[in-house]
Design a binder for these strands. Structure first.
Lengths: 211, 211
DNA sequence: TCTTACGTACACCAGTCTGTGTACGTAACG
DNA sequence: CGTTACGTACACAGACTGGTGTACGTAAGA
């Protein structure tokens, strides 16, 4: 569980305090929100002295930023790399993330911090942009006439489902998925609605097109 | 501007302190968020003594709840009562609220308070439900095959645009409106683009695809 | 005029927040 | 062994939070 934090070399840099702090952050920020979670409580949960926490992170803001950065790799991307699915199926699969994401932490952070200049808000924007780009890319593979529009639309659906789930306390992703299905079918010319890939993008470059 | 707060009778109950407090709440909660706005600051802006504020509101929570309750009447409803528009146009008109709503205050409150039991969170849920109901109702008038589904879908679009606008700092309502147009066209059988039973007719609604 | 309700000014409380300073382990590596 | 880096324990600072207590002002209505 607690892996050595820094070096792939033999030299160990610590005994997992940083990991415990970030792990506790994820739990507490998700369950209680950022503002309602004090550093004291966080350190208690992380079983770390306050002093140690402030030796790892210059301040709470930095911790929050790092906490958000942690999500980057493992929320969405898994969906986009599934070569067993057609591009169209991949787009739809993006809406099957029900229980794992209570509320998109990026939205929560942006609202809670309430400061567009905050580094965490920057991360949030970057992430949202990246997701939209991925969707656009996949939409292009799927043969959408206006991939950018479709990508942006699908991104909006995800955020809408996220926000609505939070406010209403009831799952909204199925609704979003239904909309997505309609949009996708409408955006892809009838000729290529079923056949994946067809002439262009013969999956040779679609595996990892960029980044 | 500052109207006598309580009685339509001649008897006046105060000199507008309560109104000033609520007015200041709207401004500050919107600009800074709820949690980041202290009662001290709020009272200063409202030009009201702290003591007075706490004589009008039992606590900050109550003030927040009342602040949210204030929005109820004048955000959406205006759209639904416009008899000069066809039901279909009314549905689309719901997405033309760009500058007026920075971020749906209900979403913001639900996220910031982070407590579903909070009275303000209740208001938020009630409001969202009411909006969806209105949309459903109008969808039914417009002749949608599944009005409830369409209503819920459109509500999700609104929230998605709201959330996304907040996180990205860029207007997302046009995107939502475009989706709405597609959904509406898809949900209403081609034969009955107008309300069945009522002869409001004016069949030329197909000539105005947007706005 | 006096009464009464509304509002003000200001000090103050207790609790929490982020963030430090200090002194003390302890395990790894030379 | 000693050095060094990491981590701990704990008290404390300073600002800010929501919320009160007290004494006073003031305008409306009788």
């Amino acid at each position: 569980m607690t892996e050595l934090e820094k070096g792939p070399q033999g030299r160990r840099r610590g005994r997992g305090a940083r990991e415990r702090i970030l792990s506790a952050s994820q739990q507490l920020f998700r369950d209680q929100g950022i503002n309602r979670t004090g550093m004291d409580q966080l350190c208690t949960v992380a079983q770390v002295s306050k002093r140690t926490a402030y030796q790892h992170f210059a301040g709470k803001d930095e911790l929050v930023a790092e906490y958000l950065r942690r999500f980057d790799p493992d929320v969405m991307p898994g969906v986009f790399d599934r070569t067993d699915l057609t591009p169209r199926e991949r787009l739809l699969a993006a809406f099957e993330i029900p229980a794992s994401t209570p509320l998109c932490p990026y939205i929560a952070a942006a609202v809670e911090l309430h400061d567009p200049e905050h580094p965490a808000s920057q991360y949030a924007r970057d992430y949202k942009t990246a997701i939209a780009a991925r969707l656009t890319e996949t939409a292009r593979e799927a043969g959408a006439t206006d991939p950018e529009q479709l990508g942006e639309q699908l991104a909006l659906l995800i955020d809408g489902a996220s926000a609505r789930t939070r406010v209403l306390n009831s799952e909204s992703f199925p609704t979003a998925a239904a909309i997505a299905a309609v949009l996708i079918d409408n955006a892809i010319p009838a000729s290529s609605s079923r056949r994946p890939g067809d002439d262009r993008a013969t999956t040779s470059n679609s595996a990892r097109p960029k980044r």
